[in-house]
């Protein structure tokens, strides 16, 4: 039910975006999200875009994954 997938916005027509997940296209309602532009990645959830994906934070998360844990010196 709470499954969401990252999809790329191809174009926007009013409150509906056409988004691509791989080579498959879907419609995503923009009724719950402002400031969406073509080229953005959004989280598609039950037909609605519910959040934009932040590319800088995405890269930072990958960097943190690669850290070596040394908790007692933090």
């Amino acid at each position: 039910m709470c499954l969401g997938v990252p999809a790329r916005v191809i174009h926007i027509d009013g409150s509906v975006a056409t988004v691509a997940l791989g080579s498959v296209e879907y419609k995503a309602s923009l009724l719950l999200l402002n400031n969406v532009n073509p080229g953005d990645y959004v989280l598609l959830h039950a037909g609605f875009a519910i959040e934009k994906i932040d590319p800088a934070e995405a890269a930072e998360t990958i960097r943190l994954f690669n850290e070596i844990s040394n908790m007692y010196e933090e």
């Binding site: 997940l21 080579s23 990645y41 994906i53 990958i62 994954f65 690669n66 908790m71």
Partner: peptide, 28 residues
């Protein structure tokens, strides 16, 4: 790689999964 699977594939990387598993074993 098919376009558009960005933000999925990189979080499924098997070397990362093993690394994180080792980190958990180390601190738990």
């Amino acid at each position: 790689k098919p376009e558009g699977l960005r933000y999925i594939d990189e979080y499924r990387d098997s070397a990362l999964v093993l690394h994180l598993s080792n980190q958990i074993r180390k601190v738990s």
